[in-house]
Design a protein around this nucleic acid. Structure first.
Lengths: 363, 363
DNA sequence: CTGAAAGCGCTAACAA
DNA sequence: TTGTTAGCGCTTTCAG
């Protein structure tokens, strides 16, 4: 009672294809193709018969065949650094949602910050003939980019990258958010601020660090090289970096991190060292992942909207896919801004300092 | 200096295909096919010429065409509940790693706990002609399962599911871990234990709750219905559920959660209510995501190895793909066990109770 | 061991 | 408007 007229023994797969549908609907396969592709010139009577057959047979068109003949895979590649960093799943979810809404699937690649893995990812994208790729991680080798160009595949980057014929970039305005962060700390009275970066090979990590240094300067503060630690954007990396800082003879009073996971690692290191946030150290993250609201205490951080990022990336790709709208600016701007929560406060030595000179009062 | 003899204007895509390679290597396309597929009977001299041409042309075979003719897409589907729950990225990463090692790609579907989305996911898998599917979320509709069966696509589930011809299941031994957890709490002196479940439509959430109730009974404790709250496996859900419990006239002294994200939400609710963990409430999570080690304080939780899960799922699928090893047991067991960290301690009323009767001393 | 040729399931001319 | 037909790029018989 479960299967219609198909053979019971599983050695004969039924193979429901366009021909079956055509036969059952008593039309040609071309008519079936037109019907399911919503070509408007199909006789409603025939169309009805086709849809009936499609339903009865539970027919799905074969994507492979479709892609082969049309040259479009309806696949969008999305290359991220590390899928286990919660920022990326949030981005992926958004990206997928937008893509699916436009009839595209996504193919995810996670490079784990390794060049060789990145190469593999790019290659897989090429092999699967994606119609476009969003690269949300560090720089890609030029020859891979060339290959995408040869196949006429639009590419979009998240960061300053070699500007190329078919490569557009999503420029993140790191400055706005980081400036707010540094100012916030400065106003609270912090003068000694450390920074835990991401892997410096990542262009985005580089940019964040450089921007931090610039903002520090604008605030009239000096950077202490010993407080500039290279992390790796992971929990473990954040913890290790903070432990290095704690081992130093002189400590900063505040730490900015290149991403939220690093900041959570720092919080943990501080917890282990029986130090309090923000009483002993103020802390600012970057990204504003959903979790940031839930840390104890909740993390002050710089928000970079992954919704925005995903939307702009997909938009950029799709608009370049339709020959008409090929003209859009090569650079979209992504904003950042400070979200103040509870990991920032007066510096530990604020009271001592008050003896010498006045300070801005607590917020 | 970048492109060889291809036309400069981008309106003519070069189209590097098997024929180009054949021509350049002065062999037939069949020989090219054999060479790149490592068929051993190819003359080494010809093979060398082919590889040379492949390299020079930077040729990749077209996966679509390959899939079309061979009937194998070399794609494995992976359907999860919610990609933003860190457990799943960890699982995905593992799954992908194993799959790629065997020459497969993965196609990810995230259902967000919605039946309609699940249907879409399943359909996408069908359309892309995946060679196998791992369903790591709640029950799937029977008719979809039928469809997979019709196409002869092996399916593997994470939980008790309708046993079907081509459907195997990965049975998680919830009991072992949850029993340890309840015992741990009981030994500490907790008698009033609440439970925040996942969405009860999820079979896995159901199982965890039922198992908890069973273990409570084994420990000689009684369940208080008011302390059994349905959450949704998210941070927000955990926070909300805990707030409900706090609003009750009588509180439990310990809370078990259906997953770690829920527990982190609970920690946050407690933090907001100025309550301490484990002084005011003991807390146990489930999954043991990497983050569990980093919460403040670090979360006591029940580990379910996603490495194990991913490996067994892929193994199961792949072994059923090669006609030879079609015979493996239909059920693999996944273990769970308690990881004690710092969110569990003596119940708040321990001292009062001690006046009446002796208690096990602190660990 | 190699090459010619027949499709895989579908779309897109082109005819009718 | 509908049907016929020629491929899309590749694997895989089947002869040679």
């Amino acid at each position: 009672m479960k299967r219609s007229q198909n053979s019971i023994d599983s050695s004969t797969p039924p193979k429901i294809d366009i021909r079956n549908v055509a036969a059952r609907a008593r039309v040609s396969i071309a008519t079936v193709s037109r019907t399911i592709n919503h070509v408007p010139t199909v006789d409603p009577v025939l169309a009805a018969r086709v849809w009936k057959a499609v339903t009865e047979l539970n027919y799905f068109p074969n994507t492979q065949a479709r892609a082969l003949v049309s040259g479009k895979s309806k696949l969008l590649g999305l290359i991220v650094s590390e899928i286990t960093n919660p920022f990326f799943p949030e981005l992926i979810q958004e990206f997928e949602q937008v893509a699916v809404a436009h009839g595209y699937e996504i193919l995810i690649g996670s490079t784990n910050y390794e060049t060789s893995t990145m190469e593999l990812c790019a290659r897989r994208m090429l092999e699967r003939k994606v119609d476009g790729v969003a690269i949300m991680t560090f720089g890609i080798e030029d020859f891979l980019l060339d290959r995408f160009a040869v196949d006429n595949i639009p590419v979009v980057f998240i960061d300053p990258a070699p500007t190329r014929p078919l490569s557009n970039v999503l420029a993140v305005d790191y400055y706005a958010g980081i400036y707010e962060g540094v100012q916030h700390l400065a106003v609270l009275g912090h003068r000694k601020i450390g920074f835990i970066s991401g892997p410096l090979r990542l262009r985005s990590a580089e940019s964040r660090k450089a921007t931090f240094l610039g903002c520090l300067h604008s605030a009239g503060l000096k950077a202490e090289p010993a407080w500039l630690i290279e992390g790796d954007h992971t929990l473990d990396g954040g913890r290790d970096a903070m432990q290095k800082i704690l081992a130093l003879p002189k400590h900063p009073t505040a730490i900015m991190c290149s991403n939220d996971m690093t900041a959570i690692g720092v919080q943990h290191a501080l917890f282990e060292a029986k130090l309090k946030v923000p009483d002993d150290f103020s802390l600012i993250g970057f990204d504003d992942i959903h979790l940031a609201e839930y840390t104890i205490p909740p993390l002050t951080t710089i928000r970079m909207s992954c919704k925005d990022l995903a939307n702009k990336a997909v938009d950029n790709l799709l608009s370049r896919l339709k020959p008409a709208g090929a003209k859009l600016e090569a650079v979209s701007k992504i904003n950042t801004r400070l979200i103040v929560r509870q990991t920032t406060g007066l510096p530990k030595d604020a009271l001592l300092d008050l003896i010498d000179k006045p300070r801005p009062k607590t917020r």
